[in-house]
Design a protein around this nucleic acid. Structure first.
Lengths: 136, 136
DNA sequence: TTTTACCCTATCGATTTAGTAGATTATTTG
DNA sequence: CAAATAATCTACTAAATCGATAGGGTAAAA
């Protein structure tokens, strides 16, 4: 299940990307337009800023804005930041690899075998989609 | 993240499928061989029986056994029973569809657009794999 | 210097997850 | 029949996670 955090984060990014110019948009506006709890959205935008997707400006006329062009924002990166590992199991994760404690041999594991395929299929989708691709 | 329930369930199914004949295997044996908490495994095997994947036999020489041939057990079905919906979001689910409460229009939703692709990619994998395919 | 709006910390209730304990029922075997 | 065996059922618990909320603190602009 996709977390609300990821869902809201994606919606916020899409909202910013669909703006005319790249001037700052206030949290309150995004929250209202996208039906998101404002306080919750604050923390999400904060992590997106800390991880280099967004910039922010304080004071009057402030808000959040995209740092990169939508076509340069890969879904692989967004998903990893917001949702965590793309793999459903640590033993097939590229960026968050961990050995299963219970499994003696990954190469003889049916779960591993299936989840490798799942990981690749998902990666394929996320790699082929930038923020620009999921607009409108 | 894949739940332990699904992981254990898949391992148990694979264990049963890799058996020489189709005679009943006891919960205790599966639990031991696959490093699974026996009590937890009990409940998993029970749901797999109730959903038509396994048969069971009580008393001495009893245990669980596959009802269908491994090549006839589709991962789509197993995953839906153990893990739940394949879609990451209800609004793109084939078997568990639900409208998002917050989203006014699915067709204008970026999350929907992305998650549709993810769903299809996952379905593709699960449809192309039977229990027989993930053995060894 | 006041307002705006981002930034930070803490907490909370609900839900889910993984596992545990104990009793019961059905089957086989002596 | 009785005893052993192994699945079945009911109930409970600890821990983690999720989504949300509260309440300030701080930097920047007017």
């Amino acid at each position: 299940m996709l977390s609300k955090k990821t869902k809201y984060g994606l919606k916020a990014l899409a909202y910013l990307a669909s703006q005319q110019d790249n001037s700052p948009v206030q949290i309150a506006e995004i929250a209202k337009q996208e039906n998101i709890s404002q306080k919750f959205l604050e923390s999400i935008l904060l992590t997106l800023r800390k991880t280099g997707f967004l910039g922010s400006k304080k004071g009057k006329g402030g808000g959040y804005y995209l740092i990169k062009k939508p076509s340069e924002i890969l879904m692989t990166d967004v998903m990893r930041i917001l949702e965590g590992p793309i793999a459903m199991v640590p033993c097939v994760s590229l960026n968050f690899y961990e050995k299963c404690s219970d499994c003696p041999d990954e190469n003889a594991c049916s779960v591993n075998k299936l989840m490798l395929q799942v990981r690749d299929a998902n990666l394929e989708v996320y790699r082929n989609n930038t923020l620009a691709d999921i607009l409108l």
